[in-house]
Design a protein around this nucleic acid. Structure first.
Lengths: 147, 147
DNA sequence: CTTGATTCGTTATCATGATAACTAAATGTC
DNA sequence: GACATTTAGTTATCATGATAACGAATCAAG
């Protein structure tokens, strides 16, 4: 993701929306996209230093936090994350090769595997979670134009 | 971009941050990432219906709104958008092939071209801008499934 | 002017998002 | 139970983000 460093002026937006209140709402939304873009970049860089990505991290999170179960099917993960199945398939394959996930056949559905975290994945999750929250804590700082 | 459909509970986050105020800040940041993810998806779908992407749209915007000039160099566009030069290079090439951009050599720097909008691009920009603001206006409404 | 450092754009390569089209399994209807 | 529909996962292909490494032009130091 990337986004405009400098947002349009209120006057410019008002030229399209007509109404000043609407123009402010639009600028709020653009500001949010800019902040999300910067935050996401910080997050991705943090995960990259641990050999991960936000995507891989979130896959581990949704499996880990599932109550009463320690595994999920691909489609269940996809539903919890709003990500497409092909993307998830590819990532699960990579994470399995990296010993972060392991699968066993689903006894109730011959099409599916039950995907669970390896011990290494659980360790890694515990290790990186505090730094993740620290980055999110810094997210309400004012956005600066760095040039 | 994609993100968790269901955010962690306040209690779960408090388990990591210790302090309740910090936990709320973290949840605000996660909520923002979720809203930005959904909004961005709407925006990309809108642009796709016009044969564009957010990236291509923003390139047109920064050239169009430049005061006193009608062209920018690649690196100037990259600076205004916070996007990497290889990405921009590839996109400018595609947009030039699609008759949205045209280039002429920069008389002041033999390494650069001056990139400007074609008349078609200006027309397209005028045509799609209102719908873009309409989507941004809806960004503060509760999330709904539009199919 | 010449030399060295910097900047600009390009190429190559990779990661991560999407949709379309397919196979296999499960489900629903008769 | 047979057959059509639906669902789960996979494959192929594409778009868009990144960094690394490179040649060419510019700039800065002397």
């Amino acid at each position: 993701m990337f986004f405009l460093k400098t947002l349009p002026s209120l006057d410019m937006v008002r030229g399209y929306t007509g109404d000043a209140g609407a123009a402010e709402t639009v600028l709020d939304a653009l500001g949010m996209l800019r902040r999300a873009s910067l935050l996401l970049r910080d997050i991705e860089q943090y995960f990259a230093r641990h050999g991960l990505s936000q995507q891989k991290f979130l896959i581990m999170v949704v499996i880990d936090r599932e109550p009463d179960r320690n595994s999920l099917r691909l489609s269940e993960i996809a539903n919890r994350l709003d990500v497409s199945k092909p993307v998830l398939h590819r990532t699960i394959k990579a994470m399995t090769a990296a010993d972060l996930l392991m699968s066993k056949p689903d006894p109730k559905d011959g099409r599916s595997d039950l995907i669970q975290l390896t011990p290494q994945a659980k360790d890694l999750l515990t290790q990186i979670m505090p730094g993740y929250f620290e980055i999110l804590l810094g997210a309400d700082r004012p956005v600066q134009d760095t040039g």
